[in-house]
Nucleic acid binder design. Structure first.
Length: 228
DNA sequence: GCGACAG
DNA sequence: ATCTTGTCGC
């Protein structure tokens, strides 16, 4: 398996917010740049990114798994570690995970055609979840796939794969609960950047032909547990 | 005022 | 996210 290993020397070109107030200000500024309609070309290479933390939380590991969009087979991987720079605060998760993710994506020789992010996109109280943040910072199309709900309400959905229910918050559709496998809990899918909601749903079903989680996320997840 | 709260 | 084994069920 091809891999690149970078040390704890990562940096982000512009200063990263340190306080909650700063992060909220940045979030308010960046949220306006999110595009929630389809705006991407042919999908050849897709990539998923996942973050993990050391036991004491001081180090952040980011794993990127690049796959062929048709065969869903791993084509390349990146694993890097850098100091953690922000605490976990619900609604501000991206300020904890995005910097390492963006840097790891930058280590790919070629930018992928689509990012699959383990977290919410617009299904967020201020419409700026992790997938939006990473999408806007990289400029790449991104979709958010979360294993649980952050905000919003949805009606019951069918038990079979493909069943879905729109996720509503303050009279707005912010994403969808989507069943990718019969009898399992639904995933929460929402646009990250440059992808519309219906396309997000179609793509997640395509990328998760067998298991509950999309293959890209499964691979990135497995990779991120391989440090040490 | 009280509970909920991605990873 | 992390601490963590076996076990029940499709």
């Amino acid at each position: 398996m091809p891999a690149v290993l970078a040390g704890m020397d990562g940096f982000v070109s512009e200063p990263w917010p340190t306080t909650e107030a700063e992060a909220r200000a940045v979030q308010e500024r960046l949220r306006r740049l999110v595009v929630t309609r389809d705006d991407f070309g042919p999908l050849r290479r897709i990539a998923a990114v996942d973050a993990h933390f050391s036991a004491d939380g001081s180090a952040t590991w980011a794993a990127v798994a690049e796959l062929d969009a048709d065969s869903l087979e791993l084509t390349r991987s990146v694993l890097l570690c850098q100091p953690t720079r922000f605490p976990y605060i619900p609604g501000l998760l991206s300020f904890r995970e995005a910097p390492a993710m963006v840097e790891a994506i930058g280590l790919l020789p070629e930018p992928p055609d689509l990012l699959v992010i383990d977290g919410q996109g617009t299904a967020h109280p201020r419409r700026f979840g992790l997938a939006c943040h990473v999408g806007v910072l990289t400029g790449l199309p991104a979709i958010g796939v979360a294993k649980s709900r952050l905000v919003g309400r949805y009606e019951d959905l069918g038990e079979t794969r493909g069943s879905r229910a729109l996720l509503w918050h303050r009279r707005e559709v912010i994403g969808a609960a989507l069943r990718t496998r019969d009898g399992t809990n639904p995933l929460f899918v929402s646009p990250g950047h440059r992808v519309g909601l219906e396309t997000c749903i179609q793509l997640v079903l395509r990328f998760a032909p067998r298991w509950r989680l999309p293959e890209p996320i499964r691979l990135a997840d497995a990779l991120s547990r391989m440090h040490g």
